[in-house]
Design a protein around this nucleic acid. Structure first.
Lengths: 200, 200
DNA sequence: ATGGCTATGTATACCGGGTATGTGTTCGGC
DNA sequence: GCCGAACACATACCCGGTATACATAGCCAT
């Protein structure tokens, strides 16, 4: 649903045609989520079907211009004011993989964790490299001047924070698994002290 | 692709029928990602089509049993050994929303951030409540937590780490926006006057 | 006992997200 | 003058996800 609302929000700025919407979207999210052009057109037809936007004929260059409707404006407003719900978070492939790895036999969980950890670290370095590049486009100032640059920079930060959390979680998993293995081998019958003080 | 591989990994343990696979999956991920039964059957037919599993007739109760193939075993092995790539991360609705909010006019970004922040905090409390419940299930018995309980607990931790990162990112965004606003009001004309308001 | 509720179990229709691909035009550089 | 890149639109296709239909079995309460 994010692409649909993003296009609507862009249309609220001014009427636009399909390709233009793609360019505007990618200016704000950079190379993070390259938006396939086809999806723009299918989304636009759905928006028109649902009465949130309407095709307004062609402009001087012959582009099919879409304009947001009042219902569309309402939709955008509620989108911005309603927080994204974490009650039904999207499936996290890594979490599912780890959950399966610890429950099925014959999988070396430690190796899975370590390989994922180095991959995530590599991604993290890519992000910091991208941040440096983004900063170098506007030569002297360290801060992006254009709002679109600021948006792309914030998106990058989001990726960084997510990757850092992933690494922390992987380390946390490793620690818990190691502790569980020790307890299982040490005190299999007695109610061992469940004292939990992880090293933060 | 995560559901497909998860089902394959479960089938590697033993041959199973559709409903059983759903139960096993949800035992490991709890209420986080309730798996619609329909998806199990469609995924199973695709697995059979791709030669990764095969329907093996019915068991004593008349259930259609699926069995993993050698190709399926290879697929699971590579799934576990290959880290999930962060080069094409799934679209993050919140990041997209913020990116759009800072670039389109007439949106109070601060309010968007604050509302999202409290929603995420509420989710975080739900998670800790769930963790308490999960811990209380193994109160009296000296039974060392089942592997499925451990998996569900790790998945919960993953949600917690993700939510914490989201809150940190939101605070970070707020700080950056405040700083940008200060700089914009303090030094509006440094060197390039045309760079400021060139809304294409 | 029977009517309803829940759990078990399978199957299909449908929609939206996402990718690949096909088809043109325009424009600048070699 | 030609070639490739950018521009611009459209469609086919697959997969993930949800809703829904359908059927049986057990259980509980009036």
């Amino acid at each position: 649903m994010s692409v649909k609302h993003a296009l609507l929000a862009l249309l609220e700025q001014q009427p636009m045609y399909g390709y233009q919407l793609r360019v505007e979207f990618e200016q704000r999210t950079g190379t993070t989520w390259p938006l396939n052009v086809g999806q723009v057109y299918t989304t636009l037809t759905r928006l028109e079907r649902d009465g949130l936007a309407s095709a307004e004929g062609e402009d001087a260059e012959g582009h099919l211009i879409y304009r947001i409707t009042d219902a569309g404006r309402d939709e955008v407003a509620t989108w911005f004011t309603t927080p994204v719900s974490r009650t039904q978070p999207p499936r996290d492939e890594l979490a599912i993989k780890l959950a399966l790895a610890v429950t099925v036999a014959g999988v070396d969980v430690g190796t899975v964790i370590q390989q994922q950890r180095s991959a995530t670290m590599a991604a993290l370095q890519d992000y910091t490299r991208l941040k440096r590049q983004a900063g170098s486009s506007t030569v002297a100032p360290a801060e992006p001047a254009e709002p679109a640059d600021l948006a792309w920079s914030l998106v990058l930060d989001s990726l960084v924070f997510g990757a850092e959390a992933e690494i922390r979680w992987l380390d946390h998993c490793e620690a818990r698994l190691r502790r569980a293995a020790v307890e299982r081998s040490a005190a299999p019958t007695t109610s061992a002290p469940a004292s939990e003080r992880s090293t933060r």
